[in-house]
């Protein structure tokens, strides 16, 4: 059984080590993307004119192939994990910014008016009302960003073996070992599914206030409809 997970020594990692590396390389950029996207999205909500150009820029950045990114970055960050993670973080913005903007905007007007009328200042209103109500849609955005990031990490193999499970795929092809290819492909898919499931779990924990059976990506609308 243990032979099944034996790794070629040039990978310098056990299978579990590769999985953990893959997770780190995929999820740290998404976390970074979230930290950038939250204030950026809030700016876009406050200043409406800012949203279209921000959307345009994130889309253009997403259109840049990762190889091109690597070529530029390699002069600065070398053949490191960082060179893989920076493009992934940038890519996550194309999903996260619109998800957060739409989520925050979809908080019902009367809820916001009621909060203002009760004496909530802008910061308190954002943290205590808008963000919690937007949380399910933000998590929906995180799910897409995480899964896409997990699949994209493999490309890192092209720059000095920074592709984690992607490197395994490469080794499988070089050594002509089908076992390694399966371990890489199935491992990546299972990882994506598990992360997705974990995020669903987080959302369920965070939103006991959502109507059961209608937990969808547009929670505020369905919640409102059900409440009527």
């Amino acid at each position: 059984m243990s032979e099944l997970f034996d790794m070629p020594s040039d990978l310098q990692h056990s299978y579990l080590g590769l999985v953990m590396l893959h997770l780190r390389e995929a999820l740290l950029p998404v976390l970074f993307g979230l930290l950038v996207a939250l204030p950026l999205a809030q700016l876009c909500v406050r200043l409406r004119w800012l949203y279209p150009p921000v959307l345009w820029i994130t889309t253009v950045l997403y259109a840049i192939p990762s190889l091109a990114f690597f070529v530029i970055l390699i002069d600065y960050t070398g053949q490191s994990e960082l060179t893989v993670m920076i493009p992934l973080g940038v890519y996550s913005l194309v999903v996260l910014v619109p998800a957060i903007v739409d989520a925050v905007r979809s908080v019902p007007q009367e809820t916001l008016a009621a909060a203002t009328a009760m004496g909530f200042g802008p910061v308190r209103r954002y943290v205590q009302v808008q963000l919690p109500i937007a949380a399910p849609a933000i998590i929906a955005g995180l799910r897409v960003a995480s899964v896409s990031s997990i699949s994209l990490v493999s490309v890192g193999m092209l720059i000095g073996n920074q592709g984690a499970l992607g490197n395994l795929l490469n080794s499988g092809m070089i050594y002509n070992q089908e076992r390694l290819i399966w371990l890489s492909v199935v491992g990546t898919a299972v990882l994506a599914i598990l992360v997705d499931a974990a995020l669903i779990g987080v959302r369920i924990l965070l939103t006991p206030w959502m109507p059961r059976g209608t937990r969808k990506n547009t929670p505020t609308l369905t919640a409102k409809a059900a409440a009527r």
């Binding site: 019902p108 009621a114 909060a115």
Partner: peptide, 23 residues
């Protein structure tokens, strides 16, 4: 102060405007 003023006045809105994430 605006928030002191608002907290001294109750406000009821159409559709109630309840905080859906709070009991």
């Amino acid at each position: 102060p605006v928030n002191t003023l608002r907290r001294s006045m109750g406000y009821v809105i159409q559709n109630a405007g309840l905080f859906q994430h709070r009991t």
